[in-house]
């Protein structure tokens, strides 16, 4: 068995092809007012047969988004609420598939979406570490030597054997982040998880992510915290109403974005 660290070292020195490739991706959600039930299913089927049209109004969360990320690059995704950032991260980590377009991620990734971060409430923190590592494709034997480090980093030593359902949102986010960085993925997808941690923990996370970046890992990072983005990412993507509005150096994109946010009141659509 090859140790996790060696394995991940060999994969990091890979070819120079882009590690993430997104081409013309559309994601459509069906906007439904009611929960789908047998009655609605039957009715909509009838209507479709008669008028040949769909009942629900289509809503595109992402429209024609294309970009590629090179190995070792760290990219921030910024944008207003509902601009499709989380949808993009979900597509990248394979939780959903695009309606149209192609999407390719080469390499092992860990994704951290939502505050619960894929924990099972009834299980203790320690069991969730093993389970979460397995979700990220790491066998229990391989994560074994890192478990103490994970607990140490998350500062959860007194609570590690209590069920996760009793954790606060900050605690579970800390544990989720700690696991995601310790499974040594080639790519990390982060979705606003840092927002719930306190300032000291955020500092620690950013420091650690800078270290990961220096090791040549790829980071894709959704954040509203522009100072963290400036510190961590050389490149930023600005999503606006599901379209890629700007793609470039993070300073430039953030400047434009902040200018736009100040001159466009948030309630005008």
């Amino acid at each position: 068995m090859i140790a996790l660290e060696e394995r991940s070292q060999t994969t990091l020195e890979g070819d120079s092809a882009p590690i993430i490739e997104v081409r013309g991706v559309y994601k459509q959600y069906v906007r439904t007012t009611y929960r789908p039930s047998l009655r609605h299913e039957a009715l909509s089927l009838l209507r479709r047969l008669i008028r040949k049209q769909t009942v629900a109004q289509p809503f595109y969360a992402l429209q024609d988004v294309s970009f590629s990320v090179a190995r070792g690059e760290s990219v921030a995704i910024v944008g207003r609420n509902g601009s499709g950032k989380t949808t993009l991260i979900k597509l990248l980590s394979g939780i959903m598939r695009p309606t149209k377009g192609s999407l390719r991620v080469r390499g092992r990734y860990a994704s951290l979406i939502g505050l619960q971060a894929g924990f099972i409430g009834e299980l203790s923190g320690r069991k969730n570490i093993y389970l979460n590592a397995a979700f990220h494709g790491v066998m229990p034997r391989q994560i074994e030597p890192y478990v103490e480090d994970i607990i140490e980093f998350a500062e959860l030593r007194p609570f590690i054997d209590t069920p996760v359902k009793h954790y606060s949102s900050g605690m579970s986010a800390r544990l989720g982040f700690s696991i995601a960085i310790h499974v040594l993925p080639e790519i990390i997808f982060l979705d606003e998880v840092l927002a719930v941690g306190d300032a000291a923990f955020q500092q620690k996370c950013i420091a650690h992510m800078l270290k990961l970046r220096a090791e040549g890992r790829t980071i894709v990072f959704v954040s509203h915290d522009s100072s963290a983005v400036r510190l961590l990412c050389e490149r930023a993507l600005w999503l606006h109403k599901g379209r890629l509005r700007m793609d470039g150096e993070s300073d430039l994109v953030l400047e434009e974005y902040e200018y736009f946010m100040q001159h466009q009141p948030p309630d005008s659509q």
């Binding site: 090859i2 394995r7 994969t11 390719r104 991620v105 080469r106 092992r108 790491v138 066998m139």
Partner: peptide, 11 residues
Amino acid sequence: MAISLAQRASE
């Protein structure tokens, strides 16, 4: 131990 293959569903 092939771990890098585990999540490559898109290939």
